[in-house]
Computed example of a mutant assay.
Amino acid sequence: MQQAFLPIVAAALLACTLHAGANAAGVEVRYDASKIHSDAGDTAAQRERRLEALAEHLRTLGERRLPADRRLEVELIDLDLTGTVRPTHRLPGEVRVVTGRADGPHIELAYTLRDAGGATLASGRETLYDAGLPRLGELRDAGGGDPLRHEKTLLDHWFEARFGGEH
């Protein structure tokens, strides 16, 4: 009798855990790396790496900034990285050149913010762009640092503007 009872208890605990996970706070990010984005990379593998890095950044923002009873769903629709790619014969690969404010990053996304019960609190589709990015002081470390630092800064500003007062 006791052995028959244990699988039922285990199944009930698993169901509760799965249900709690579905409503847990955080950020869920979706994207399609196989889709050609404006300027996210020449190959699906390049796009996958870059989009996943931005998705991870959004998840980290959610962990730090969203209240425990909020869940944010984000779809990264399009990405245009900072600068313009210029082929070079002197160096292997490519060089990304920033000539002015028009070379700032662009990110198109859709989002839905939900409460613990699944009710929609806010949603929208936006194209993020900051004409002030990149700033000349940040370009001095062009050879080092995070190659997606401008795009992550843009996401930081958007997250703060949309959800900064939540936590």
Rank of each mutant, 00 (worst) to 15 (best):
L109Y: 00
G41E: 01
A119Q: 08
V74P: 08
A20V: 03
H89I: 10
R140S: 13
G26K: 10
L54A: 05
D156P: 00
T43I: 03
P92Y: 04
D146L: 01
G62Q: 11
D156H: 04
R59K: 14
A33Y: 07
A20D: 02
T112M: 07
E75C: 08
Y31S: 12
A10G: 13
R59F: 05
G145F: 05
H89Q: 13
E28Y: 15
H106K: 01
P7R: 07
L14M: 14
T120Q: 06
H19S: 14
R125Q: 09
H150P: 01
H19C: 13
A22L: 15
D32F: 11
E73T: 15
R70E: 03
S123M: 13
D80F: 00
T84K: 07
V74H: 06
A15N: 12
R30E: 15
E48M: 08
L139E: 11
I36G: 08
G41N: 02
L54K: 02
R59P: 06
E73R: 13
F5P: 04
W158T: 00
T127D: 05
R114Y: 03
D130G: 05
T127M: 07
A68L: 15
S34P: 09
R49K: 04
L128T: 01
A33K: 06
G41Q: 03
L54Y: 01
M1F: 10
R149G: 09
T153F: 04
A33G: 08
G132N: 11
G137Y: 10
R149H: 12
L54S: 02
H157M: 06
E126F: 05
A53F: 02
K35L: 06
V85D: 12
L79T: 05
G93Q: 09
L76K: 07
T17N: 13
H167Y: 11
A25E: 03
A116M: 11
N23L: 14
R135C: 06
E94G: 09
T112V: 15
A22Q: 15
E63S: 14
A142L: 08
R96P: 03
Q2L: 14
T153L: 12
G117S: 13
A142G: 09
L51N: 03
A45G: 10
D141L: 12
T43P: 00
I8C: 11
T17F: 13
P87H: 07
L13S: 12
R135N: 13
K35W: 10
R59E: 12
R90V: 11
R86K: 12
D146G: 01
S34M: 14
E126R: 08
A119H: 09
A110S: 15
H150G: 01
T82F: 02
H19K: 09
P92E: 08
G124E: 01
R86G: 06
G100E: 14
